[in-house]
Design a protein around this nucleic acid. Sequence first.
DNA 1: CTGAAAGCGCTTACAG
DNA 2: CTGAAAGCGCTTACAG
Lengths: 348, 348
Amino acid sequence: MPSPSLARAGRPITVVDVARQAGVSLATVSRVINGSATVSALKREQVTQAMLALDFRPDPMAQGLRRGQGNAVALLVGDIAQRHFAELTQHVQRALEGQGYDLLLFNLGHQQQRLEQFLARALRMKLRGVVLATSDALTRPVFEAGRQLLAQGVAVVSLGQDLSREGIGSIVHEERSATRRSVERLLALGHRQVAYVGRVKGSAIGTERFLGYRDALQAAGTFDPVRVWDMSFRYTAGHESVMRALDEGISFTALQAGSDEIAMGAIAALEDRGLRVPQDVAVVGFGDIDLGAYLRPALSTLSSSPQLAATQLAELLRAAEAPAAGPVRIELPRELVERASSQGARKP
Amino acid sequence: MPSPSLARAGRPITVVDVARQAGVSLATVSRVINGSATVSALKREQVTQAMLALDFRPDPMAQGLRRGQGNAVALLVGDIAQRHFAELTQHVQRALEGQGYDLLLFNLGHQQQRLEQFLARALRMKLRGVVLATSDALTRPVFEAGRQLLAQGVAVVSLGQDLSREGIGSIVHEERSATRRSVERLLALGHRQVAYVGRVKGSAIGTERFLGYRDALQAAGTFDPVRVWDMSFRYTAGHESVMRALDEGISFTALQAGSDEIAMGAIAALEDRGLRVPQDVAVVGFGDIDLGAYLRPALSTLSSSPQLAATQLAELLRAAEAPAAGPVRIELPRELVERASSQGARKP
DNA sequence: CTGAAAGCGCTTACAG
DNA sequence: CTGAAAGCGCTTACAG
């Protein structure tokens, strides 16, 4: 006897087969599939047995078409090539799977236009949900599309950026207050010239982080725009910014970066110029990507919890089945992870 | 007048609407959608106009159900948290998008069981294709499932591992010969004790890379299993392996790693023990992840070309529409990227 | 070249 | 609690 999954390779098993085998109607089979309460124990058992015997699995497309709702959740990430988003994706995939959803991945590459294009298609895709995980500042058309999706019963959640004012449930991390605390610590260590790399243009989150830096320095009365460098979130940005600053003779003894990748690039530039970390310049990253612990010097950073965020996300998506009271906003804490790159007090 | 996409937010536009507006039958609309040749220029124009006016887009689920073939390609990656796979995913997403396919991401986390589970579901998902991107050695059930999918018209392609003997088209990089060349170069620089970290158990690719190392050392008559360390592909593995070897008093002046992440972990361990790279120990990674250039010392490595691989993949998927002569095998070259971590000749 | 009709595999009012 | 029937939005033989 061939194994069930190999049987009838030609024609897939459908509800019709199950109904016949169980001696019930299509409707009853469907009710069992969908866990309807109004099925007698006897028939439920018959159907269950038949499904098992035939190795039946419902056709997701047919279900999707009929229900008007598919099984996939789209994850739109700023850029999967950035460590932060890769780690996030890992956890989101796992969380969605636990919920029985498929993950449709769409890489934005930080292009607003690509986001809008996807959203235009999204309406037709019968998605279960759309997860927006990007640091980029968003525009009106995006919010429009989000509202349309929401209106069609598609769960829309923002991961990392607060969009609750736009009616979109959001799971965010501390940003501003986290940088503020980190910079205050650098000040407490005796640093007077603290630079900031990563007030990324067009990045909502980048701006938040910068504001925390400014808060701390303004309170101390040592804020100076000349020590704020704008670039992207990638390695190159950190490297080039520091090189340029050094060329221009801008002095600094500590550096708060807007991302760990920026911090890595910055450290490379400092070493290229013969400066030691942390002796000559203390460096703090942002995000706690896993490789930070394997750098030498190991990278101090402001932690994030992609796993927690993913768990919350799954919960939010499930909750979306029932209409919510209003858009949720969940904030996750960041801890300062002190490692070698920012250790030791600065001598006055 | 409201914008077309906002019109009728309640009821989606279907082929029925288009047919009515264009004054033709459903069949004709469908023929235009699918680019059938047998439509008169006049009707084609009418339908096209109607679709434009109504902002009509076909329902992918309905199309999928009827055609027996959806629009998604599943990408199964070894572990998205590994840099290498994240970069691959980035390029695959772009390539698939160019082909009009959606990307369904499934993270294996290197668990054979998860792969088998997915494959069991895959048959029902009406996928366009399945892309297997894992370094792990595969088992018979996986090949079985692959053949079943192939038989059902699902394109199956292996990325990174040669499965052409199993009837699965494969896009691979040089592995064995690449490591061999790299190690030969280390020997030429005067190194006599070259260690290898990363003959990962259960990794087909890891084994290939190791064999290239062994080829080179056996030819030189200096192969010694005590300098071969097995672990995983991650940072921790590199760090722990080197720590242990140092503890055990195993000597070596050069290190070939099975991945860049391993190399990073190894370098951290070396520095932790006060050894300098490359002066005391030269290190070469494998894979050319983008951050290698931003490490200090910058990481020498054996390049890969995820972009090229993704392009080839898209081509293979498209070609899969027509039945091929036999499983293809495409090999991409690796170049040695010489950076600081392995520079300079070893003094005898 | 074109249209009427059947059907892809399900779910869900509607009766009973 | 259960079944017969309609229908989700398309595509594709089948006639003409």
